[in-house]
């Protein structure tokens, strides 16, 4: 009887866990690349320089529309598009949160800091040291920019360097 009890208890524990999983995943379920789907939540350490303003970790969802921009220190186009993002951030910062994600950069911590020094970016940047977030988002390459609506669904993804016009068009749509 004890053995049967163990089976029942273990099954009940698993059942509880998975039932929680089913209910918690509703509306959080992701297709890594599909538009209109809810993008995965995340919580990542913030680069030290932004911690005073944005805290030690940044998590999605925030309740605001979000622009998530993946970059790496060795990526030329990321350097090139940094001013575009920074300008847009300064203009929209009250309505939209920008998050830079430093990915595929393990072992290059110093170069990543140098990237931030050079570009003078003031929106928060987080570290994706194990590239997990890149995998979760089905990252296509760097730079890549994701436009996430207030409800967490993906409005648009842009692979490659983004222009001011493309950025503003997406931001206007995010705010509608």
């Amino acid at each position: 009887m004890t053995r049967l009890l163990i089976v029942v208890v273990v099954t009940a524990l698993l059942a509880g866990l998975f039932w929680f999983g089913i209910t918690a995943s509703q509306g959080r379920a992701i297709g890594p690349t599909q538009l209109g789907r809810v993008m995965p939540d995340f919580s990542r350490p913030v680069f030290a320089r932004y911690q005073a303003e944005f805290g030690e970790t940044l998590s999605l969802p925030t309740g605001k529309p979000v622009v998530v921009s993946f970059w790496a220190s060795w990526c030329g186009p990321c350097h090139a598009q940094a001013p575009t993002l920074e300008a847009a951030w300064r203009r929209y910062r009250d309505q939209v949160l920008f998050i830079g994600v430093n990915t595929q950069d393990r072992g290059n911590e110093r170069q990543a800091e140098a990237f931030l020094n050079q570009s003078g970016i003031t929106f928060p940047n987080v570290k994706d040291l194990d590239n997990r977030l890149g995998v979760d988002y089905g990252l296509f390459g760097v730079p890549e920019t994701f436009f996430i609506r207030r409800d967490g669904t993906l409005q648009h993804r842009h692979a490659g360097p983004i222009t001011t016009a493309q950025l503003s068009a997406q931001l206007e749509e995010l705010l509608q």
Partner: peptide, 21 residues
Amino acid sequence: RSGVLSSVHAFAEGPVGPWFF
């Protein structure tokens, strides 16, 4: 299939979660 764990195979998801559960 239920999407409880997110993954690169998310295209295999659907409404069958509770049934498989």
